[in-house]
């Protein structure tokens, strides 16, 4: 077998010609995966649109149960984390090990803040009996306001969308912790930061999805 070691840096797998081909492949692969993600969420958005077109009044009513303030705070939190991920990539590109670590840490922190806020939102709703599926059991006051036979469906969609999105946030946190540990060992530099780059792409998509979820779920007046 031809020996490429002279021209092959350690991080380049044997089946790639060079570092750039590997980087571009990883990035393309991630984009193709994001196409998947978009259509995966697309199914939920489609269900949302179909039911909203059928029952517009339901959506106006039900959205009142969602707290716009905390939804907006979470939007800002996710935007912030997108910014820090972008900064993390920039740090890696500039060989700034410290900057990379700090930015990753802030991102993880913001992602956790997002989940905590989401947790309290869920908690509050479950408390009022606005629960998914067979647990649907709104308190009398709520039932008086949410006076629609299909109210359970709106919240079915709400819970599916936010839970699937939340799952993506959790996966993102796990990936970011892994990146952080590798960054501390000095695995990344301006020559090789592919994992940071593609995890970043993933994280931005999680943000993108939320950018649409927020007005669609919270901002119906």
């Amino acid at each position: 077998m031809a020996n490429h070691s002279a021209t092959h840096p350690k991080h380049v797998h044997h089946h790639f010609v060079d570092s750039n081909q590997q980087f571009e492949s990883a990035k393309l692969g991630m984009w193709v995966f994001l196409v998947n993600e978009i259509l995966f969420f697309g199914g939920l958005f489609c269900a949302y649109i179909v039911f909203r077109a059928w029952y517009p009044e339901l959506f106006t009513q039900a959205a009142l149960e969602l707290n716009t303030f905390w939804g907006a705070v979470n939007t800002v939190v996710l935007i912030g984390s997108s910014l820090t991920v972008a900064m993390a990539i920039r740090s890696a590109q500039n060989n700034q090990k410290r900057g990379l670590e700090i930015n990753l840490l802030i991102t993880i922190l913001l992602a956790c803040v997002f989940l905590v806020i989401k947790y309290f939102e869920y908690e509050h709703k479950l408390h009022l009996g606005i629960a998914p599926g067979s647990f649907w059991n709104p308190t009398p006051e709520i039932a008086a306001v949410l006076d629609h036979p299909k109210a359970n469906i709106f919240f079915g969609i709400y819970y599916m969308m936010t839970a699937v999105h939340g799952l993506h946030v959790i996966i993102g946190i796990a990936l970011m912790i892994w990146l952080y540990l590798r960054a501390r060992k000095g695995h990344f530099n301006s020559e090789y930061y592919t994992p940071v780059e593609i995890t970043g792409l993933y994280w931005h998509l999680v943000d993108l999805i939320w950018i649409f979820l927020f007005p669609l779920l919270y901002l119906i007046e």
Partner: peptide, 26 residues
């Protein structure tokens, strides 16, 4: 977000096409 955070603005056109294609099929 897509153009600048995800760097599509500086990236190969094909990656932008993927994003647009996904939206089109949605």
């Amino acid at each position: 977000v897509a153009a600048f955070f995800m760097g599509l603005y500086w990236d190969t056109k094909f990656n932008s096409m993927l994003l647009i294609g996904a939206l089109a099929f949605f």
